[in-house]
Simulated assay, not measured.
Amino acid sequence: METNRLSPKIAQALNDQMTNEAHNAQIYLAYASWAADKGYDGISNFLFRHANEERNHMMKFLEYILKRGAKVVIASIPAPGPDPLSVNDCFEKVFQSEVENTTKIYAIVDLSMAEKDWATWNFIQWFVKEQTEEETLALDLLSKIKVAGGANAKNDALYQLDMELKNTPDDATLAQDVTVEKP
């Protein structure tokens, strides 16, 4: 008896996204290690936490594929790429990576709608919201770095940012959650 509830296209897309989440975890690990090496322990801690979050996303895809009766395909992941040149460059790369990830998530949304796979469409909605949060968080950090001087930020401003990121929550306030009372 066939128990697979995913089409070959959707199974492939979900497996590809699982691999992409693993790749994003490696990117965050690489940047966290770079930040630690530069003495930015707060930034490093923030990025290590996000590496773990990306691994959790990978596991969500893996579990979903299994629970829908399809085959999980573990593929190799690309190297994370070169180290950032600065804190500004680091978070520009983080933002770029998140935008690319959002594009891939949206492609799965489109595919699930085209195939009328409502279970996958429902599953992927969590990631749509998560990507909105990730992009917002990265943009908020880029704004802070811009105020601190961007690529030319001075050590005292970077020190302040580093201290702040040590305790920064891992999620951002989304536009849909804002009210007049709670902007």
Rank of each mutant, 00 (worst) to 15 (best):
Q176A: 12
F95Y: 12
L139R: 13
D110Q: 02
E135A: 11
E92M: 12
D41C: 03
G69Q: 05
L47N: 11
V147A: 12
D83V: 06
R5S: 08
M163Q: 11
A138Y: 04
L161W: 07
A32P: 14
R55K: 15
Q131C: 13
A151R: 11
A51S: 10
K93T: 06
V72Q: 01
E134Q: 14
I65R: 01
A30K: 07
N4Q: 02
E164L: 12
D83Y: 05
Y31I: 14
N101Y: 10
M58G: 13
F123P: 05
E115R: 02
Q12L: 00
H57V: 11
M163F: 10
K116M: 02
H50C: 00
K67A: 06
E2T: 06
M58C: 15
A79Y: 08
K182D: 15
N24K: 01
R49I: 06
G42E: 04
A22Y: 07
D16T: 02
K154G: 03
K93C: 05
Q176D: 14
G69W: 02
V87E: 01
E54T: 09
K116R: 09
S33F: 07
M58L: 12
I124M: 15
E100P: 03
T173F: 09
D177R: 02
Q12I: 00
T132S: 13
I10M: 15
L6I: 04
Q17P: 01
S112F: 02
R55T: 14
F95I: 15
T19S: 01
I27M: 02
A30Q: 03
N24Q: 03
T136M: 10
D162L: 03
H57L: 09
